[in-house]
């Protein structure tokens, strides 16, 4: 039995619990003496857009990082598609983040030395897709996000709103099953933020990707199907 198969046996049934694509149950996570998560739970169904809301420092980004396998919780479990992430090897977790997950952060985090088109094609290249095919798909996604014209520009040469659209294209180019977006509009004005949200949610729905959307802005959360509130490391669902 492979490590992956062993990990898949994590749940009693061997299937995603209750049809959830991701189930985070009773997570705790401490950073020194600070309890960032204190019994937080989050379920995500395939294709669902869930907003994780809460004040600064409430633990919502830590919850996202645990759900995405970036952080390992101290206790509790994170199950993705019947695989317990905590039981996976580092290599398997990296593979998961590269192939099944997409990420959008507050400030884009594009590679400054690469053109926008190269940034978008990068996840495909890392997954072994050929240069020409990766460039073709990146081009397609830049068009879809209405930023085709900045393909040859460096990230430092474009506006914040354009940068976030490039980041959304990069997150979706591999057709991930889950997109994790951490304050994707936090650095944008209302109009640009709104356009990024419209394009992100439309693209995710078109490709049946689920989205975990961390935000403290109610107007951004209103793009989600439902919301989960984090306070003092604990979750409260509606």
């Amino acid at each position: 039995m492979s490590a992956s198969q062993a990990a898949r046996g994590a749940t009693a049934s061997g299937r995603p619990r209750d049809g959830n694509l991701i189930s985070c149950t009773n997570l705790t996570k401490r950073f020194g003496s600070t309890a960032a998560l204190d019994g937080a739970s989050l379920d995500l169904a395939a294709g669902e857009v869930v907003a994780v809301m809460g004040p600064s420092g409430s633990g919502k980004s830590t919850l996202l990082h645990c759900a995405a396998g970036i952080l390992v919780p101290d206790t509790g479990e994170v199950v993705f598609d019947a695989e317990q992430i905590g039981h996976m090897s580092d290599r398997r977790r990296s593979e998961l983040r590269r192939t099944e997950f997409g990420f959008v952060f507050q400030f884009g985090r594009l590679v400054p030395e690469l053109s926008c088109a190269e940034n978008v094609s990068l996840p495909l290249r890392l997954s072994g897709v050929g240069r020409a095919e990766a460039a073709r798909r990146a081009d397609e996604w830049l068009q879809r996000l209405e930023v085709h014209e900045v393909g040859r520009s460096l990230p430092g040469e474009i506006s914040g709103g354009q940068g976030q659209r490039v980041a959304v294209a990069r997150a979706l180019v591999t057709r991930p099953r889950v997109v994790f977006a951490d304050e994707p509009t936090g650095a944008l004005d209302s109009l640009n933020g709104e356009r990024v949200m419209q394009l992100l949610t439309a693209a995710a729905r078109d490709t049946a990707a689920a989205v975990v959307l961390v935000t403290h802005e109610p107007r951004v959360a209103a793009y989600a199907d439902r919301e989960v509130v984090v306070r003092d490391g604990k979750t409260r669902a509606s």
């Binding site: 419209q198 109610p218 107007r219 959360a221 209103a222 793009y223 989600a224 199907d225 919301e227 509130v229 409260r236 509606s238």
Partner: peptide, 20 residues
Amino acid sequence: LDTQRAEHLRVMRELTSRKA
């Protein structure tokens, strides 16, 4: 507060989808 928040967000979701 939580009951009210959920209701406010429900209406905000409706308005957001109407805007689309």
